[in-house]
Design a protein around this nucleic acid. Structure first.
Lengths: 225, 225
DNA sequence: TCAATTGATGACTAATGGGTCACATTGTAC
DNA sequence: GTACAATGTGACCCATTAGTCATCAATTGA
């Protein structure tokens, strides 16, 4: 899906219907998305004005509307990107060779890094999802929720194996993935919002702690088989 | 600083500085808080207008301002109530006789019930906390965060005992309480927001699952001592 | 070179909603 | 009953902001 700019008129251009104009349009679209995202991350969705976005993207306000029909649509574009990225973290994690523990460890450090870099973006999105009705068109919302679900399903996959998860027969693995995700987000909230993120560069300790709690629990191991 | 209008001159009124007027004022104040809370729970903070609150409380809009200086102050009043209630759940939980596991089980079912009854109130509050700067006066915000912290500290207390927590020496028990809380909120988000809360009346299963994961982990127990 | 088409622009519009205030209503004192 | 205080009220004010559109600039094609 990459565009190759064969300007000298090679035949390959027949198989490449994306013109320069189209490419420039796309590039500008990405530019706007990028600017909007920066501001949403920093200030939240509702508290970011279109004028700010336009100024930050170095476009006129009217221009934004040549690319996105509304502020909501712009936001949906960003959600799309984000969901893709999070899903990528999931897929990357379960591709790790080894047992479920190692996959979850990778997922944990992936998410922590992502939240560190993207601030409250995920939180803002979850907040919007939370309150379906008013803000965002409902069918689009369903679609987004489905994608969130898909992420959990990917994570749950290694947990369906009884050798990886003593509760495999007892409860829904997706439920467990949700709990793991909850711990992660709880950690991130606590670390980056409550305590004022004092420049700790390495979060692998945290990822390991969370994974360890999830798989081994915090109780002293007794010798019951 | 209370005015005591002991009109009939009984001696007992000396020991009772709250006049009828004062009581009625307080009652009306609570009435307004209740109405505002209903709407915030249903629709969120920003999306609730003062006109709606006034209409729902059956007062004129101007009257609201005789009791609260601003919409923000009204919201802070609700946060105060909520923090008290959550702290009460914490204290109730650690008062349960038995080991840490039983206390946490109580906490879990308390929180799940609370979220079920109060909808996204907690989420709305956390969302506002998240984005300190703009919305809410900063010193007040610090105070609120401190109260959240205090809840975790209460929960962490039984975890400082090494017989209750194999990680007692290794990591901060407050951190662990945060993780537990994260699982709870993850669960609630998933149950009440993502999946459309199909009338399940009993959530003790969930509370038990979460507690079990937290204390025992999901890994198959091997016989390593 | 000169239309013509495409696209950028920001002053403007309309709607929203927090906050105010002059007036109305109720309660109290004598 | 009258005067006075305290409290309730909603029409109004004004700042904010999503969205529009007449106008302008750039590019294209002949």
């Amino acid at each position: 899906m990459k565009d190759h700019t064969d300007q000298a008129g090679q035949d390959s251009s027949l198989r490449e219907p994306i013109s320069r104009k189209e490419r420039e349009k796309r590039a500008r679209e990405m530019e706007i998305l990028k600017a909007a995202r920066d501001l949403f991350v920093a200030n939240g969705f509702r508290e970011t004005t279109l004028d700010e976005i336009a100024r930050h993207a170095e476009f006129g306000k009217g221009t934004i509307y040549n690319y996105f029909a509304s502020k909501e649509e712009l936001f949906l574009g960003i959600i799309d990107q984000t969901m893709d990225e999070v899903l990528a973290i999931c897929n990357d994690a379960i591709a790790v060779p080894g047992d479920a523990r190692e996959k979850f460890l990778r997922y944990a450090s992936g998410v922590i890094r992502y939240v560190k870099e993207n601030g409250e973006l995920l939180h803002v999105i979850y907040h919007e999802l939370h309150r379906g009705s008013s803000t965002v068109n409902v069918t689009k919302l369903r679609e987004i929720l489905d994608r969130a679900r898909r992420g959990w399903e990917v994570l749950a996959r290694p947990l369906t194996d009884a050798t990886q998860n003593r509760l495999a027969g007892t409860c829904d693995p997706v439920q467990l993935a949700v709990l793991f995700d909850g711990m992660l987000r709880g950690y991130c909230f606590h670390r980056f919002s409550i305590e004022g993120s004092q420049q700790v560069e390495d979060y692998s300790d945290a990822a390991e702690l969370i994974t360890s709690v999830f798989f081994d629990g915090i109780a002293e191991r007794t010798h019951e088989g």
